[in-house]
Simulated assay, not measured.
Amino acid sequence: MPEKTDYELMAANLLKAELKRKGVTYAQLVEKLAAIGVDEKEVNVRNKLSRGKFTAAFLLQCLTAIGVATLKLD
């Protein structure tokens, strides 16, 4: 399997950290995504985050769904 790029790793870690900070599980994330009209299965979300392969749109959808208003990138 190809290695994750630095930016893929950064995106995955950023989203995982925000989920942990908000206390949101993958199952809850799926529910919150559904509430904003995004149809995802828990296994797909789990795979996307473990692989670090997802679109910027998916990242923004997740952050919006869990109520993240600001990000700190450093």
Score class of each variant (00 low, 15 high):
L29H: 07
I66P: 09
N47T: 14
E40Y: 13
L49H: 10
R51H: 00
Q28I: 02
L60S: 06
K53H: 09
K53I: 03
Q28Y: 01
N44T: 14
L63M: 03
Q28G: 00
K22Q: 14
N47G: 08
A12R: 00
A17M: 06
C62M: 04
L15Q: 00
A35R: 12
L60Q: 07
L14N: 10
V43A: 12
A17R: 14
V38K: 14
A56G: 10
A69Y: 05
T25A: 05
C62V: 02
T25F: 03
L33Y: 14
F58D: 15
Q28E: 13
R51L: 00
G52W: 00
S50C: 08
F54I: 00
E18R: 15
K20C: 08
L15C: 03
A57P: 05
C62F: 04
L33D: 14
T55L: 13
N13Y: 01
A17H: 03
V68N: 11
K22L: 07
F54Y: 03
E31P: 07
G37D: 04
L29S: 02
T55M: 12
L59V: 11
I66V: 11
R51S: 00
I66E: 10
R46Y: 03
G67P: 01
K41R: 12
L59Y: 10
A65R: 00
L15K: 03
K53M: 08
Q61C: 10
V43P: 06
A34W: 01
V30A: 09
K22T: 08
V24G: 01
G67N: 05
K22W: 06
L29V: 04
L19D: 07
E42A: 07
V45M: 11
N47R: 06
E31G: 10
K41E: 15
A65P: 06
V43G: 09
G52Y: 00
L29W: 03
A57H: 10
K20G: 06
T25V: 02
E31H: 11
K22M: 11
V38N: 04
A11Q: 15
L63V: 03
F54D: 01
A35G: 06
L33S: 13
D39S: 15
T25R: 05
F58S: 10
L15M: 08
N44H: 13
A69C: 04
R21E: 15
L29K: 00
K48Y: 02
A11D: 15
F54C: 01
E31L: 12
E31Y: 08
A65S: 10
K32N: 09
